[in-house]
């Protein structure tokens, strides 16, 4: 029933060209991680894979400790995401199902905090971190933002639609404590919300550059983006190794994304569409 018209062919061509533009940088990154610096420095550029992947790998390991950086990134990102999910779901759940005095006012306050850009306080924030001895620690990256207004707002929406108030009352009659109710009864219902919000927080933290740059000065503590930056600032650098390091930073998340892209996109944009 769908006929292939000229207009449609043009549409496909346009879409494919844009898709190509999106893919080429990734493709070139993969290609360049298998080339030596001299092979990268040729004109016209090489567009097909070379045979220096192992050589680049050795060179990269001589410059940076990629496994360590990977571990550091995992450490920061996972701790942050877990804490964030815990606090946001607790907050969202409370706002959605409890009818406590001042609830609407407090929630209004929470919404208002979303309007304030973080930039305004960046200098005192940094001074605070340094006074508290949190420079070169992961606390500075994990604690300050882990109960965020957006997450609570979002969890509240989810709880309102999916968690009946009667559920808590029933569990209470059965003799469950509030904690048990939250972890045994409520949290399982929230799993879809956890995964969506979790993806959002995970991706943002994993790729964050500015805060770690200000906080993590010691090389052994640095996360992947910082280690990459270190490679760039060393002049006379080995470009093949640098590309391989970029690949290492990008590939894990990219693979997970490609496996579950629908899930990712709805998770990452979930807050946007629901106003």
């Amino acid at each position: 029933m769908h006929k292939l018209t000229v207009g449609k062919v043009i549409l496909y061509i346009v879409l494919c060209i844009i898709a190509l533009v999106m893919i080429i940088p990734f493709y070139m990154m993969f290609v360049m991680s298998t080339l030596t610096t001299n092979e990268i420095y040729t004109f016209p550029p090489r567009l097909w894979f070379g045979g220096s992947l192992i050589r680049n790998f050795t060179a990269m390991n001589a410059q940076i400790d990629i496994l360590r950086a990977f571990g550091n990134s995992c450490m920061v990102t996972i701790s942050y995401t877990v804490l964030c999910l815990l606090f946001c779901s607790m907050g969202g759940y409370a706002f959605a199902t409890y009818d406590f005095p001042g609830r609407n006012k407090l929630f209004g306050l929470l919404l208002a905090t979303m309007m304030i850009p973080f930039t305004a306080g960046i200098i005192p924030w940094f001074m605070m971190m340094s006074r508290m001895g949190w420079i070169n620690t992961y606390w500075a990256l994990i604690i300050p933002g882990c109960a965020n207004a957006f997450g609570i707002f979002w969890m509240r929406q989810y709880c309102q639609n999916n968690v009946p108030v009667s559920l808590r009352e029933a569990a209470k009659i059965d003799g469950c404590s509030e904690w048990t109710i939250f972890f045994r009864v409520i949290a399982p219902i929230l799993i879809p919300a956890y995964s969506a919000l979790g993806i959002m927080q995970f991706v943002n933290t994993w790729n964050d550059f500015m805060q770690p740059l200000l906080i993590l000065r010691r090389a052994s503590m640095q996360t992947l983006p910082l280690v990459l930056k270190t490679m760039v600032s060393d002049r006379g650098t080995d470009y093949g190794a640098m590309m391989l390091a970029s690949t290492c930073a990008v590939l894990p998340l990219l693979i997970v994304f490609l496996c579950a892209s629908k899930f990712f996109m709805s998770g990452l944009t979930a807050g946007a569409v629901k106003e």
């Binding site: 070139m28 983006p225 990219l254």
Partner: peptide
């Protein structure tokens, strides 16, 4: 495909 750049690190992208 269009969404891929969003899950990648800005530092890596800038290097590329």
């Amino acid at each position: 495909i269009y969404f891929m750049p969003m899950v990648t690190s800005s530092v890596a992208i800038s290097i590329i």
